[in-house]
């Protein structure tokens, strides 16, 4: 039996005066990977920010349930602690805050929420080493301030690394491949694929089909004018690659 993890119903949202999400419906069950593809400016990133609760993104109507709970009523940190994770298109730099300090606060905030004891320094270092090895995150990177001076590839690797230590139930990948060369893309995709299992779900937001060669989705949705205009399996992505989005953009 399929258990729904995320249920988005008839969602409308705006940024300032501009309505961007218009009647969006999507249910993601446990273990499923959905790709949302669409032309630039369709509101793909807005969707990721609405789901993670970024200030300035206002819900007009509709509902989003996560594990049956009202996601929209939660603060951004509550959503993260409940298991929502966003790999950002442009990860934010935080000068003065060492990456390891940042990660320790993050991991322990999530653990505390689940009534787990906080990790002590030794346990935490062990966790960082184990997961860091897979993604080429070394001690030197962890000492540096969060994302400061990181290359595009390093930033995305760091995002994937964070996901691998927080082990969220639901991950949103917002243009995870932007700015990556093919080798960096493979490292990130391998990291993401290693986390796929029958419980964990993902929403892969992308403009290009390229990423979906590496992170193969169960479902593909075409997103235009604020909502899903067509759904299919992974072959839909190939079709879009060939024909482009013109057909969908014209529809409106």
């Amino acid at each position: 039996m399929k258990i729904p993890l995320l249920e988005i119903e008839d969602l409308y949202a705006r940024v300032g005066d501009k309505e961007i999400i218009k009647g969006f419906n999507l249910t993601i069950n446990e273990g499923e990977v959905h790709a949302v593809m669409g032309p630039n400016g369709a509101g793909k990133s807005t969707l990721s920010y609405v789901l993670t609760g970024k200030p300035g993104y206002e819900i007009i109507s509709g509902s989003v349930k996560f594990k049956g709970k009202d996601l929209l009523a939660m603060s951004p940190e509550e959503r993260a602690r409940e298991g929502v994770f966003l790999i950002m298109q442009y990860p934010v730099e935080i000068p003065g805050v060492p990456t390891s300090t940042f990660l320790k606060h993050s991991v322990n905030a999530v653990r505390k929420h689940h009534h787990l004891p906080e990790l002590d320094t030794m346990e935490f270092i062990k966790l960082l080493r184990e997961e860091g090895k897979k993604l080429g995150i070394d001690n030197e990177m962890l000492k540096r301030p969060v994302n400061v001076g990181f290359s595009g590839g390093e930033k995305k690797r760091m995002e994937t690394f964070q996901m691998s230590i927080l082990k969220p139930d639901f991950a949103i990948l917002d243009e995870a491949d932007s700015g990556l060369d093919i080798d960096a893309l493979k490292v990130v995709a391998d990291g993401v694929n290693a986390l796929r299992n029958e419980k964990r779900s993902m929403l892969v937001i992308t403009h290009y089909q390229r990423l979906l060669n590496y992170i193969v989705p169960d479902f593909v949705h075409v997103f235009a004018d604020g909502h899903i205009v067509k759904s299919g399996d992974k072959n839909l992505a190939l079709e879009l690659e060939e024909k482009g989005y013109a057909e969908f953009v014209r529809e409106k």
Partner: peptide
């Protein structure tokens, strides 16, 4: 942007503020 990034990683807003002040 920094606050939201930290919150989106589970760090409470007040804790995030304090971390930015320390920094």
């Amino acid at each position: 942007e920094q606050l939201f990034y930290m919150q989106s990683r589970g760090i409470g807003r007040e804790e995030a503020k304090q971390m930015l002040i320390d920094a």
